[in-house]
Design a binder for these strands. Structure first.
Lengths: 129, 129
DNA sequence: CTTGACCTTCCCATTATGGGAATCCCCATC
DNA sequence: GATGGGGATTCCCATAATGGGAAGGTCAAG
């Protein structure tokens, strides 16, 4: 099937499908006219990528997960290790963001938020330390 | 003072200081030899930027905050509005990441994590939907 | 006058995604 | 057979923020 149909069926944009190909994640056949030709197996790969990306796995991780996925003899421990490392990264970033949000909320709570120029938020950003 | 000293004193790398200049956030004088020359006021700006970036304000927001900071007649409401919008963005991203982390943790919890190939994580990514 | 530390600009890379141009292909309709 | 529309191809560019590194100019100490 064409890249357009593959995009529709996989939920991955044609643009990104081509990109994933340059990254070696999917390797469709080529028709004599140069068009890419996707088989069901390719579709499955694209869906796999989409799900992994929805969980914010970086493409490097997706590549590893795909390799494990294709390996019928993989050890589940390998997958788990990648997933848990990713979980840790996600949680650490999420925590950092929530900490920033909390500080800002705190500052904003002490900001009148009216027409006066007084503002603890700017005061904080202004600090020399 | 030189960019190197400004970098040391502000905690912003020389590379980034030059970048912020291309973005119009800081505008040091130039010495006859072409070297940038930073005054105390420039240092204060750089520190302001560093603090704002530490709170993950995008440079576009930093630009607005700097404008308000320089405006002695600003209304605190303007600052607050920017800050609260940023808080909302941070919290929404943090929530999304924690949701992803939670799903993955859940999947990982049901993954043996041993030498067997069985792995619900891959099973989930494989789904056609 | 050389050496080393510092400065300048310019280009490139990162991550994942998309926009857009120029060109080509295929199919259907007149 | 010509034409037109929709889709395909490749290539370049842009995003946000940061850094690496090259090629060359400057300055101060020895």
């Amino acid at each position: 099937m064409n890249i357009g149909e593959a995009a529709r069926l996989s939920g991955v944009s044609a643009k990104m499908i081509r990109h994933y190909e340059t990254q070696g994640l999917v390797t469709p056949q080529r028709l004599p006219n140069g068009y890419r030709d996707y088989a069901e197996a390719d579709l499955a790969v694209l869906r796999f990528i989409r799900h992994a990306r929805a969980l914010a796995f970086p493409l490097e991780d997706v590549r590893k997960l795909l390799a494990l996925w294709r390996d019928r003899n993989r050890a589940s421990a390998d997958v788990r290790q990648i997933a848990l490392a990713h979980v840790a990264a996600l949680e650490s970033k999420a925590q950092a963001m929530q900490a920033m949000a909390a500080s800002l909320r705190h500052l904003a709570a002490h900001c009148h938020g009216d027409a006066r120029p007084d503002c603890p938020i700017l005061d904080e950003l202004e600090k020399s330390s």
